[in-house]
Lab assay of single mutants.
Amino acid sequence: QIFVKTLTGKTITLEVEPSDTIENVKAKIQDKEGIPPDQQRLIFAGKQLEDGRTLSDYNIQKESTLHLVL
């Protein structure tokens, strides 16, 4: 699982696999929060994550925290 922290300070927990794409993660966030993926920007280690890449591409491991910017 990974954590996604929103600007409001809320933390969302997501069940993911390293092979999941960023697009996939955004879809999971939409399921939980109702935020359309095209409004979501995910930041990890100061980098904006691209939809077509996977979590493992960015070396995002379990218990990692991503930041969600709208």
Rank of each mutant, 00 (worst) to 15 (best):
D51T: 06
K10D: 07
Q39G: 06
K47M: 14
R41D: 06
K62T: 14
K47F: 10
I43A: 05
E33D: 05
R53Y: 14
T11L: 13
K62Y: 15
L7K: 11
V69T: 09
T11M: 11
P37I: 14
E15R: 07
E15T: 12
V25C: 06
N24S: 14
V16E: 00
I60D: 01
K5C: 15
E63N: 14
P37D: 04
V4I: 13
L55Y: 01
D20Y: 07
P37F: 13
A27Y: 14
E17I: 09
G34L: 05
G34F: 04
D38L: 10
S64P: 03
E23I: 12
A45T: 05
T54E: 04
Q61G: 12
V4Q: 00
I29R: 00
Q61A: 11
V69L: 13
L55F: 03
E15Q: 12
T65E: 07
L55S: 01
Q1K: 11
F3W: 06
G52L: 09
E50Q: 09
S56F: 11
A27D: 07
T8F: 13
I43V: 10
K26Q: 02
L66C: 01
E63T: 07
E50A: 08
T6R: 06
V4H: 01
L55W: 03
K62I: 12
V69Q: 09
L66W: 02
L7I: 14
Y58G: 01
Q39C: 14
I29P: 00
F3P: 01
T11H: 06
K26R: 05
A45I: 06
V25S: 00
D20V: 04
E50M: 10
K32W: 06
H67C: 15
K10I: 09
T13N: 06
Q1S: 10
G46M: 04
E15Y: 13
Q40D: 01
D31L: 15
Q39F: 09
T11N: 06
L70Q: 09
H67V: 13
L55A: 03
K32Q: 11
E23Q: 13
K26G: 01
D51N: 13
R41V: 15
P36Y: 05
A27H: 12
E17Y: 10
P36T: 06
V4M: 02
G52S: 12
V16N: 02
I43T: 10
K62L: 13
T65R: 05
P37C: 11
E23P: 03
L70E: 09
S64D: 15
H67P: 01
V4R: 00
K47A: 10
N59M: 08
T6A: 05
Q30R: 13
T65C: 09
E17D: 12
Q40F: 15
N24T: 15
Q48C: 15
E63M: 11
